[in-house]
Amino acid sequence: MDFRFEILLEYREAFLHGLWMSLQVSVWGILGGLVLGLILGLSRQIKSTESKKDFVFKLFLRGPSLGYITFFRGTPLFVQIFLVHFALMPLLVHPDSGWLISGELARVIKQEYGAFLSGTLALILNSAAYVAEIFRAGLQSLDSGQEEAARSLGMGYGPTMRYVLLPQVFKKMLPPLGNEAIMLLKDSSLVSAIGLAELAQTARTIAGTYSRYWEPYIAVSIIYLVLTMGLAYLVSRLEKHYEKSDRS
């Protein structure tokens, strides 16, 4: 078996471009998923002692967020990417009949950034469901005495969540969130299916051109490995930092 390095060298700019694209999709996916996931997680948890208010919460917040989480955890990300790119996006952004954006701007967006936007959005929507579940597990792992103590001091639901529970939950969420970020980084390779020129797509292009498979796929494997290991290191540093600053 010969390993032709010159192929990789020839395509090094494509690799760099692909790496940059993968990083962008992943970082936006992680950040967006975190924000949306926390909103989802909070709306899945919100309760009230007043039964009327509680019913409203159930109908408009708890119910819908549970439905959302069930759908996005229960269907393949691969399918979700197609749904977003070929079904949802044309509905929202379309030259003739976009609900959000239409006309010339819609055409430009679609042509220049279509796959990027769809891919990122799909990753955000998907990871938000997992983040919401991580949040719920974190809340459940806290001693119920923490909430009781806060409530017994006259704090309502909002302040209890914000000043007592959330700061403690974040620490507990860190390891599973790190896992989720690593999963998302790897899963971002699925976005190549809608034609975004990220790392996996670059490998596929080379493979198609030269009919060589070892070189491009070993190369992207190594790049992904370096990225995920770097991310894992970052998360462990963050965990240690919190341990030190918190001493609890």
Binding site: D143, A149, A150, S152, D246
Partner: peptide, 13 residues
């Protein structure tokens, strides 16, 4: 109405 718990329930953070 203040309350004191068996397990203190101080906020550890």
């Amino acid at each position: 109405v203040g309350m004191v718990f068996q397990k203190f329930n101080l906020f550890p953070h």
